[in-house]
Design a protein around this nucleic acid. Structure first.
Lengths: 359, 359
DNA sequence: TTGTACGCGTTATCAG
DNA sequence: CTGATAACGCGTACAA
């Protein structure tokens, strides 16, 4: 049949009922007699009608059943991070009760060249996607911009790990306090020479030392660093370009390079970074934790790190995601959602010990 | 302002132009004089109008700009698999030119209990999401069902690694041929006692031996196994419950348990499984590759596997995703998309060697 | 270049 | 339990 798809009106006509009755059969919003239902269903299958067009339904209802999840990175990259992965998991759980799907979005679309001869076309994003709500996974300066876009559209929004301002529910961690715990642990062990390997200082950051005048626009980085400095005000900090083992390795090499300033402990802002630092320590012919103690952050399973068991802060990543999902669900039902700050659990592994005796 | 949001009609009225003119200003489909444009834009910002409602626009256009990606697993789990992660990456790339967003969907919604007192509500899925197209990441029997749903809706669909039948474009690998290569490599080295650690045999599979009468409904598993059996018809196969290091470890333990039947080589159907098998070998007090050779599949970076470098088949995971995305784009433009079979590259690492001398 | 008219496919609402 | 009516907010022929 080269004709257009059947609509609910066609089905109704075929079944000899009114469109509204047919609609009700599919939505189940109102009781329908069995006989009528059967007629409608039969007519539908006869016409190859598979149910209401979601586009029309969402226009009418004012709901699309879609929650946008905004990343600032290349989508693929986002899932390379175990913590984000777990968050997505929780998020999926959290929105399940309202039956929403998760739409992956990037906050600043890459400047795509004109491909395949097709004329320049607007790349849909936050502005043009049919979202019921949005979850911003926050960090960089783009967050601010995305936030405005979403708020302007009047869409409920939740921010994970970022400064939302206003009345925007925020899901985050006690980053500063948590790091302070790790640092205190190190001080208790007797460390005084400590270095910090941080997450990026801001979007597009290349790895390098954080100096007094370095602006840190990423909240997580700033807060965790503050926690470390609370205990070791003199600690030097080197910011990696991302949360990867290789970045930790690179940072570790730099930090350990100068024998004079060599720290006896390194506070890494993520487990992956910590794993890299451990490699750097080994590479330098030193031992963990005998010569250098290392702490991480996240409490993820770093595959293949054995025999080390990282001393780290275990963050409830899945819970964070779930909380965000629930907050979204709450807002979608018209209620106000509260911000939630989760707490990390300090977990002592075998990567921290007292510093070696000095001569 | 407790009143409803402004519509394009309001903007037009405020600007003193017709609705269609205002529409054109936002869509850019037709030239508009600068003066008019300015008036419209000013009116829009005065009214807090942020652009056309995506729901209405998509009804009118017949396009939502959304491509569904259907997983059969818990969403979070999907991203724990590096290969899927890379595929998503490529997919995001592939659909970028048409500016589509990716909507994460599960094929069989978990049986959610009634939460939060809200009445039982239909959980939207494949049937109710406003999709322009769908990508099925295939395996289990659910695929069949999902496929029918999508086809009934008349939505373009592409299947990755699964049997699509009909005229559905399929993106997959030369799984059988690739595995055959690895197996041949082992035979050339002199191995005769070989075991296979496979991916799950079907959805919901618990780990266990694959017997003659075991039905394997997952294509990837079946094809890769066939490739191994082409070379070693007598090889025994143990199916893991998923592609994880731990599963490989568990499988390895079972396979190595019986000293009489102990193989000199293990063909694992994924790198993660292979990594687990290697651990099992070490755990048994044996060496890789001196006592037991191990091959993998995927060519991903298995974090922390050093000093081993897996002998494996490198699959172009990102390319697969990108191809799927492009196929979707093609179909959306009304053309037919072809199925594509990608080729894996054999990469020899240091986990395979000649078998030990037998007494 | 701008305006008119209409319909995209549904579903709330309310009366019967 | 069923039906008539009226939007939902927009894009696009077509005419002016």
């Amino acid at each position: 049949m080269s004709t257009r798809r059947a609509t609910i009106a066609d089905v109704a006509r075929e079944a000899g009922v009114s469109p509204s009755t047919a609609s009700v059969v599919f939505s189940g919003k109102t009781p329908v007699s069995d006989a009528t239902r059967r007629r409608v269903l039969d007519a539908a299958s006869a016409l190859g009608y598979t149910g209401p067009d979601p586009r029309a339904a969402s226009l009418r209802r004012g709901r699309s059943g879609i929650v946008g999840v905004v990343f600032e990175e290349h989508l693929g990259t986002a899932f390379l991070d175990p913590v984000k992965t777990l968050m997505m998991d929780g998020l999926a759980d959290g929105v399940a009760p309202i039956g929403a799907g998760l739409l992956l979005l990037r906050d600043h679309e890459p400047v795509e060249a004109l491909d395949s001869g097709s004329p320049a076309r607007a790349v849909p994003t936050l502005t043009t996607a049919p979202l019921d709500a949005a979850v911003l996974i926050g960090c960089s300066g783009h967050l601010r911009e995305s936030l405005e876009t979403v708020i302007a559209r009047g869409i409920p929004v939740v921010v994970i790990e970022g400064d939302a301002g206003d009345g925007v529910p925020r899901i985050d961690l006690d980053n500063r306090e948590a790091t302070r715990q790790a640092a205190s642990h190190l001080r208790t062990l007797g460390h005084t020479e400590v270095a910090v390997v941080t997450l990026p200082a801001r979007g597009g950051w290349e790895r390098g030392w954080i100096l007094d005048d370095t602006a840190i626009t990423i909240d997580v980085t700033r807060d965790r660093l503050a926690g470390a400095l609370d205990v070791f005000p003199e600690a030097r900090a080197f910011a990696a370009a991302g949360s990867f083992i290789d970045e930790g390795l690179a940072a570790g090499r730099v930090i350990l390079a100068d024998p004079v300033h060599r720290p006896t402990a390194v506070i890494a802002q993520s487990d992956l970074l910590a794993a890299g630092v451990i490699r750097a320590v080994e590479e330098a012919g030193l031992r963990v934790p005998e010569d250098v103690s290392v702490t991480g952050f996240d409490g993820i399973v770093v595959d293949g790190l054995a025999p080390y068991e990282l001393t780290t802060l275990v963050q409830p990543a899945t819970d964070k995601g779930r909380a965000a999902g629930q907050a979204v669900a709450t807002m979608l039902e018209g209620a106000d959602a509260a911000s939630i700050r989760f707490t990390c659990a300090f977990r002592e592994g075998n990567t921290t010990a007292s510093p070696p005796d000095r001569d």
